[in-house]
Simulated assay, not measured.
Amino acid sequence: MESLWRLPHWLWSLLLLCADLTEGVTITSTDQTMITKAQGDKVTLLCTFTLAAADEGSLDIEWVVVQPDGEQPVIMYNVDRVFDKYHMSGRVQFVDQNPSSGDATIDILNLKTSDSGTYQCKVKKPPGSQTHRVQLAVLEKPKKTKCYIEGSQQIGTDVILKCNSQEGTPLINYYWTRTTGTELPITSSQNPDTGALLLKNASQVNSGTYKCVASNRVGTDECFVTLNVTPPVNRAGTIAGAVIGTLLALSLLAFFMFCCCKKRREKKYEKEVHHDIREDVPPPKSRTSTARSYIGSNRSSLGSMSPSNMDGYAKTQYNKVPSEDFQRTSPQNPNFEPPKVAAPNLSRMGAIPVMIPAQSKDGSIV
């Protein structure tokens, strides 16, 4: 053993070279260990190798994703055949159509965030075998970035400009610049993590267009916002106008309700009057009943009279009945008829109905 340690340095180098030759397969692309790509991009994973003369078996190349629960195949080459019908089918391929030439590099197209992981290239040709791993991180670029102003834009107030990306893989940084006029005011301050730009004691000089750039390790996105700093609003006039407007609105509402209620009462009254059956003043008694009562009273009075007294009564009372005398004094025109007045009209004129007792030819009451 001591004689081995006494060998010259060049001999040790020769022995190590011989040992390397006996090891067989050697992967030469070991510099690539970590890659970061954007979603939708293409990535190239390197795996170049050399074979030793002692390697006599068939060449076998395997690309897999190393996971905690095992290895998931990506693409393979064995006995001059390519096997790629796995979970990335249609998106993965060998760069060299003949990987046995020493180049097992692959391309993965249309990357997804779920493609992130540790990829391992394994080249095996018995008795030699060697592996190499590459860490791949697929990130999403910032997208749908919006800029807006929070709070008032009046002179003397603190104005806050905000920027936010609705899509994108953290960590996202935000950076504000001014596209019109001068640079950002000296009194302004921005937070790259939250995307807020604070303009203290804003003035009209600060008016203009501002740009926000959102960025992460794989891409950027931007948005714009226009700031217009205006003088303060007359609060007293605004409040007075609001109060007057409210009072007018309430007055109009009250008038409208009054008109509606009045209209409803009128309709209700008309409906009740239309369906109400009223009892009119009883009609005047008929001439027949009046005459009968009059005859009864006259008969009672006549019954109390003696025959001797009847002559004067008959002469004074019943001789005045316009019977024959009326016929004597009637006009000579035979076609003339006295005007007739209806009984109801006579009653209204105050006439009293009178029953004339029947008389005989000698004037006695029958």
Rank of each mutant, 00 (worst) to 15 (best):
residue 21 L to I: 07
residue 225 V to C: 03
residue 11 L to M: 10
residue 142 P to V: 03
residue 8 P to R: 05
residue 127 P to R: 02
residue 261 C to R: 09
residue 76 M to I: 11
residue 222 E to M: 05
residue 157 T to H: 07
residue 340 K to T: 11
residue 276 D to F: 11
residue 221 D to R: 01
residue 1 M to Y: 08
residue 80 D to Q: 07
residue 299 R to G: 02
residue 28 T to C: 02
residue 262 K to W: 06
residue 85 K to R: 15
residue 338 P to Y: 15
residue 140 E to D: 07
residue 303 G to Q: 08
residue 89 S to E: 07
residue 172 I to E: 00
residue 88 M to Q: 01
residue 291 A to F: 08
residue 113 T to V: 12
residue 180 T to I: 10
residue 78 N to T: 14
residue 49 F to H: 03
residue 92 V to C: 02
residue 223 C to G: 04
residue 313 Y to G: 08
residue 321 V to A: 05
residue 101 S to F: 11
residue 122 K to P: 02
residue 169 T to H: 03
residue 123 V to E: 04
residue 301 S to N: 08
residue 309 N to Q: 13
residue 188 S to N: 03
residue 355 M to G: 13
residue 331 P to W: 09
residue 139 L to H: 03
residue 162 K to I: 04
residue 308 S to Q: 14
residue 35 I to P: 03
residue 228 N to T: 14
residue 235 R to T: 14
residue 350 G to T: 13
residue 70 G to E: 08
residue 275 H to V: 09
residue 341 V to F: 08
residue 101 S to L: 15
residue 248 L to H: 05
residue 1 M to P: 10
residue 261 C to A: 13
residue 268 K to A: 14
residue 83 F to R: 09
residue 274 H to T: 14
residue 342 A to E: 12
residue 299 R to F: 04
residue 333 N to M: 07
residue 57 G to Y: 10
residue 14 L to D: 04
residue 91 R to S: 12
residue 185 P to Y: 10
residue 159 V to S: 04
residue 166 Q to L: 13
residue 1 M to N: 12
residue 220 T to K: 00
residue 299 R to A: 10
residue 92 V to R: 00
residue 237 G to S: 12
residue 263 K to Y: 07
residue 262 K to A: 05
residue 253 L to Y: 09
residue 79 V to C: 06
residue 326 F to P: 00
residue 338 P to W: 14
residue 362 D to K: 10
residue 60 D to H: 14
residue 123 V to Q: 01
residue 91 R to V: 11
residue 161 L to E: 00
residue 76 M to V: 11
residue 6 R to H: 07
residue 223 C to W: 02
residue 7 L to M: 09
residue 344 P to D: 08
residue 355 M to C: 14
residue 298 N to Y: 12
residue 347 S to K: 07
residue 284 P to C: 09
residue 228 N to A: 13
residue 122 K to D: 00
residue 228 N to F: 14
residue 305 M to K: 12
residue 125 K to H: 04
residue 32 Q to C: 06
residue 361 K to A: 10
residue 260 C to L: 09
residue 127 P to C: 11
